[in-house]
């Protein structure tokens, strides 16, 4: 089952790097803007929510790529059961949300400065 999660990860690696990059850029931009304009909590929660959503969406991307390549059919021929597939999806999803959460906390701390 570890292999399934790994496959999932490789699938979204590209998208994840893009998301991280976008996140960093937005942080820098907001940081610069914050020097001139006082940051308000409304904007902050929007950014935090958006971050969580973006990372969670990675899971959707992974499933889409799986569907496109018939991996979801092939994986059933391997020594894994359907419940393994389900578990791996959930675990991946939780992992991505956690990463998003960490990013969001970082941005929150950043704002509090």
């Amino acid at each position: 089952m570890k292999g399934l999660i790994r496959n999932d990860f490789y699938n979204v690696e590209g998208s994840m790097k893009l998301t991280m990059l976008a996140f960093i850029i937005i942080m820098i931009v907001l940081g610069i803007a914050g020097i001139y304009f006082p940051p308000n909590s409304y904007l902050a929660s929007a950014v935090i929510g958006g971050t969580l959503g973006a990372f969670g969406a990675l899971s959707g991307t992974a499933m889409q790529k799986d569907g496109a390549s018939k991996w979801s059919r092939f994986e059933l021929t391997m020594p894994i059961s359907r419940s393994d597939v389900m578990k791996a999806r959930y675990i991946s999803f939780i992992l991505y949300i956690l990463i998003g959460l960490v990013m969001a906390i970082i941005s929150a701390l950043y704002f509090m400065r």
Partner: peptide, 19 residues
């Protein structure tokens, strides 16, 4: 083709090793 297009054969090898 039934592998994810994003993978390289090297990455595929690591996936298969765990399965």
């Amino acid at each position: 083709v039934h592998f994810s297009g994003e993978l390289t054969p090297k990455k595929l090898e690591r996936v298969m090793k765990d399965i």
